[in-house]
Every structure is written in C-alpha cells, then in structure tokens.
Amino acid sequence: MNEKPNLGALFGAAADTRTFLGLAACPDLDALSAPIALIGAPCATPYASVGAYCRHAPDALRRATASLTANIDRHDFDNAGPVFPVPDLRAVDCGNLPFDEADPAGNRDAIRGAVAKVLQRGAVPVLLGGDDSIPIPMIEALGAAGDGYKYTILQIDAHIDWREIHMGERLGLSSTMRRASEMPHVERIIQVGARGIGSAATTDYEDAVAWGVRFVTAYDLHRTGVDAVLGLIPEGSRIVLCIDADALDPALVPGVIGRAPGGLSYYQVVDLIRGAARRGSIAAMDFVEFMPERDVDDIGAFTLARLITTALGVLARQAAERTTIPA
C-alpha cells in the first residue's frame, strides 16, 4: 500500500509532463513568437565544493505542474481569470540549456546567448534555475541588447550576494548582486527578504549600502508590508526580478540549502511581483536555488511552481496590454 495514487489523473492531467504547465515546446529560439519564454538553466558558475547542486530543479518544477496541465484554461483565483487570458499570448517552454560543470564560461555564454535571442524576438525571458549565479549572464545580456535601457533589479532573497570573491570565484552565487552593481545598465537595486546569517560580511553589506542598494529585510517586510518595497520602484521602470527560493519560508519551500525561519509568504511574493508590474514593465525574471533533493514530499516544488504560474499570468497580462489582437 506504499504506492501513491496519481492524483493528477483526478483532474484529467497527463502522467508525463515534459513542459511547464503542459505549454507548447519551443526548442528553437530563432522560431520564438510567444511573448514569454521559459528557459531551464541547470548551471552557470558552480563552486567546486558543491558543483551544480540545483541542476535538477527545472525538471522538478515542470513535474510539479502535472496536476494543473489539464486545467490551464480554468479560472485561476490568483490571476483573477485564466493564467493566459489571451490564447495567442501564451508562454512557451524552450527546454533546458546544455551545461558542463567543468566549463562555467561556456555555461554563461549559453545563458547570455539564449536570453539575447529571446530579447531579440521581443519576448520576456523567464529562467528556471539552477543556482543563483545564473542571473549574472542574464543581466549581462540585457545590457548587451544595445537598446540603451536602464534597469531596476528587484531581488527577493534571504541573502544579499555581495561578496567580492568566494572560494576563488568572482562569478558565483555569493557575488551576484555585486557583479550586477558593476554593470552600467543597472541603475537601481532593491533587495528584499534578507534574514538570518548568510555568507556576507558586514563590510559587504556596507559596500551595498554605499553603492545605493535599498534593503527591506524579511522582518521589515513582515512589519510594514510590501508597499515599503513598491514605493522604492519609480514609475515606468524596466524591472528585472531575481527570485531565490530561500526567500520564502522553509515551511513552504523546504528544498533549499539555506533554510531559515521568518521567510516570506507565498502571497507576499505574489504581491511583490504584481506590484512591480504595476510600477513598470518586467523585462526578465529568474527563479533559482531550488534543490529538489532537499524538498519534503514535493511541497516546495509545487509552491515555487505555483508562484511561477502566477508570475506567468502577470507577464501574460503585461503582454496583452501592449498587443492589439485582431477581432
């Protein structure tokens, strides 16, 4: 009696989910016509001590949506309507990028190249990580687009990622926001959700403040609400959302390496995503640092996949506002 029933079958879902939410696959980015492109990025710049420890996250997140695939067109209360209200403006799943633990430069090139192609096609890239070094090449690709745009980064993370170097590596997950601060197209960084003890030193925090980072800790967010964050985003901003799974409370997402009490709730993160979209336009997004091997009964995979689903609904509505569909 240890065999688990296929509860997804109760909702008419397919047993095998190869794409997120059962969305159409688009393995050829040169043929991309959708406004939103999901891309799995299993690895960028791993530390030698742990390797690509989040490599299985993109596929685990896809599997977590299996029970939803048959009902993707049903009413979604978290999006106040179908996830994709305009059928022609659905997201597509572009599969996973190739990676090699021994070739971090090649991994970064693959991510930069994929994001660049998505941007060239006029779409919003949504990266499914993979560890938190993945945003570095993603943000670099935004600057290389040649459009002259400046960006506001909204990072939602338990850790601030401002180390200059860690384990001899400057492009690893502990240095993501410091590297972003060095990019001329990044004009503003807002970091939300820091809590507990991370790898950053007090001097790293002081460097971030001196650069101009605005911090809203997890405690401050619980105390004052999301408006304390949204008021820091100027209207009309082009926004990059960087979401680390450990920003959420580990009761919701236990599958992370840095569990700490006091994390954000699902709806706090939803409100941050929605609020950011109201303040400006979301240009790119990543969800990183989910580790399936640390999860408990797939609770974290489903929570994070549900959050991604809500975010896709926000992006679909953003696309609909910009597009006139012929009657």
Score class of each variant (00 low, 15 high):
Ala247Leu: 05
Tyr267Gly: 00
Gly12Cys: 08
Ala194Ser: 14
Ala66Lys: 10
Ser49Trp: 04
Ala260Lys: 05
Ala247Arg: 08
Asn79His: 04
Asp220Asn: 15
Ala31Pro: 01
Leu29Gln: 03
Asp16Asn: 06
Tyr151Lys: 07
Ile136Tyr: 08
Gly280Phe: 07
Arg214Phe: 11
Gly143Ala: 08
Ser49His: 12
Leu142Gly: 10
Val92Leu: 02
Ala105Val: 07
Leu21Ala: 01
Val270Asp: 09
Leu7Val: 05
Pro261Met: 13
Gln120Asn: 06
Lys150Ala: 12
Ala110Gly: 02
Phe77Arg: 11
Leu61Cys: 04
Val253Thr: 12
Ala15Asn: 03
Ala200Glu: 15
Asp295Ile: 15
Val186Lys: 07
His185Ala: 06
Thr224His: 14
Ser175Cys: 15
Ala14Trp: 00
Ile257Gly: 13
Pro46Trp: 02
Gly263Gln: 14
Phe287Ala: 05
Gly225Ile: 10
Tyr151His: 15
Arg306Asn: 11
Asp93Met: 05
Gln318Asp: 07
Ala277Gln: 12
Leu230Met: 11
Gly146Glu: 04
Ile134His: 09
Arg279Glu: 05
Arg259Val: 13
Glu101Met: 02
Leu171Val: 02
Ser133Leu: 10
Glu182Lys: 09
Thr324Tyr: 04
Leu97Pro: 01
Arg63Glu: 14
Pro326Gln: 08
Gly172Ser: 15
Glu321Trp: 07
Pro87Cys: 04
Ala114Ser: 09
Val296Leu: 15
Thr324Trp: 06
Asp76Tyr: 01
Glu3Asn: 04
Ala110Phe: 00
Ile308Phe: 04
Trp211Thr: 10
Ala316Trp: 07
Arg170Asp: 10
Val213Cys: 13
Ala141Thr: 02
Arg170Tyr: 10
Thr323His: 14
Lys4Cys: 00
Ile136Leu: 12
Gln120Tyr: 00
Thr203Phe: 13
Trp162Gln: 08
Ala41Asp: 01
Ser67Leu: 03
Pro98Lys: 00
Thr324Asp: 09
Pro42Glu: 04
Leu221Val: 12
Asp227Val: 07
Cys43Asp: 11
Asp88Ser: 15
Arg170Leu: 09
Asn2Val: 03
Ala60Ser: 14
Met183Cys: 04
Ala218Trp: 13
Pro82Lys: 02
Ile243Trp: 00
Leu32Cys: 05
Val229Met: 02
Val209Gly: 00
Met183Gln: 10
Ala144Gln: 11
Leu307Lys: 11
Gly193Lys: 11
Arg188Ala: 01
Ala316Ser: 15
Ile282Tyr: 08
Arg274Leu: 05
Val256Cys: 12
Thr176Arg: 09
Val314Ser: 10
Pro261Leu: 14
Ala210Trp: 06
Gly113His: 03
Ile39Thr: 01
Met183Glu: 06
Asp220Trp: 09
Leu119Thr: 01
Val83Phe: 06
Arg178Phe: 12
Ala247Ile: 03
Asp161Glu: 10
Gln268Gly: 07
Pro135Met: 13
Thr309Gly: 03
Leu142Asn: 10
Ala105Ile: 02
Val209Lys: 13
Val124Phe: 08
Asn96Asp: 14
Lys150Thr: 12
Arg195Thr: 11
Ser175Ile: 08
Arg274Gly: 14
Ala158Val: 05
